[in-house]
Simulated assay, not measured.
Amino acid sequence: MDVVVARIGKAHGLRGEVTVEVRTDAPQERFVVGRSFTTDPAQAGPLRLRSVRDHNGITLLGFEEATDRTAAEALRGTLLVADVEEDEDDENAWYEKDLVGLRVLTVAGEEVGEVAGVDSRPAQDLLVVRLASGREALVPFVEALVPEVDVEGGRVVIDPPAGLLELDEG
C-alpha cells in the first residue's frame, strides 16, 4: 500500500539536504540509505535516499537526484510516498486516508462533524475535525480523547474535555 511518510521542507546547507516533516511512526525503517520513494507531485521523483541524519531533533535527508541547494529547494512541499505493507496485527494504527471523511461523534452520541485530516506533530498527532459550523477543531489523537475509531462503521468517537471544540471561536 502506498503511504505518505514525509513532506519535504526547506533546503538545509549547500549539498542538497532537506528538512522533512515526518509522517510515519517508524522513520528508522522508512528512511534507509538507498531506498527509493515515489513522490506527489510525481514530476519530482522518484527520489533515491543518499543520506539520513538528525540535526538538533530535525530529520535531514539527502537524495541522489538533488546534490545542491537549488535542487533541494525545488523539492519543497513534495510528499514522499513509500510502499508499506499493512500490519494487520496493530489494531491501533490507521492511515490518514482511512480516517478522512469519517463521522465524528461524542461518547454521548452527539454529531460533531467529520474527520478532515490528521496533523502530524512531533509530540503527537492531532485529529482535524471539520465541525458542523464549517470551522475546524484540533483534537489530540490519544486514546483518552479518541477512545474509538471504527473505520468499517464510518465513525470516530471522541471524548473532548469541556471547551475543546469551542476554542478559537470569535
Rank of each mutant, 00 (worst) to 15 (best):
Leu138Val: 08
Lys97Glu: 11
Phe141Trp: 08
Ala116Gly: 15
Glu166Phe: 10
Gly77Thr: 11
Val142Cys: 01
Glu143Asn: 09
Ser133Cys: 11
Gly113Tyr: 05
Ser133Met: 10
Val151Phe: 04
Tyr95Leu: 12
Thr106Ala: 08
Leu75His: 07
Val107Tyr: 03
Arg48Lys: 11
His55Gln: 12
Asp125Leu: 00
Val128Leu: 15
Val84Leu: 11
Gly154Thr: 13
Gly45His: 03
Phe141Leu: 13
Asp119Gln: 11
Leu60Gly: 07
Thr70Ala: 13
Val84Glu: 15
Val139Gln: 00
Thr78Cys: 02
Ala42Pro: 10
Glu73Cys: 08
Ala162Phe: 04
Glu64His: 08
Val84Pro: 01
Ala71Pro: 00
Ile158Gln: 08
Gly45Met: 05
Leu80Arg: 00
Ala82Asn: 09
Gly153Pro: 08
Ala108Tyr: 08
Pro161Leu: 05
Ala82Arg: 07
Thr106Ile: 06
Asp90Val: 15
Leu164Ile: 10
Tyr95Ile: 04
Trp94Ile: 10
Ile158Met: 06
Pro147Gln: 09
Phe31Val: 04
Gln43Asp: 10
His55Ser: 11
Leu105Ile: 12
Glu111Val: 13
Gly163Met: 08
Trp94Gln: 02
Phe37Leu: 04
Glu88Pro: 06
Pro147Phe: 06
Val151Arg: 04
Ser36Pro: 15
Asp168Ala: 12
Val128Asn: 03
Leu165Ala: 07
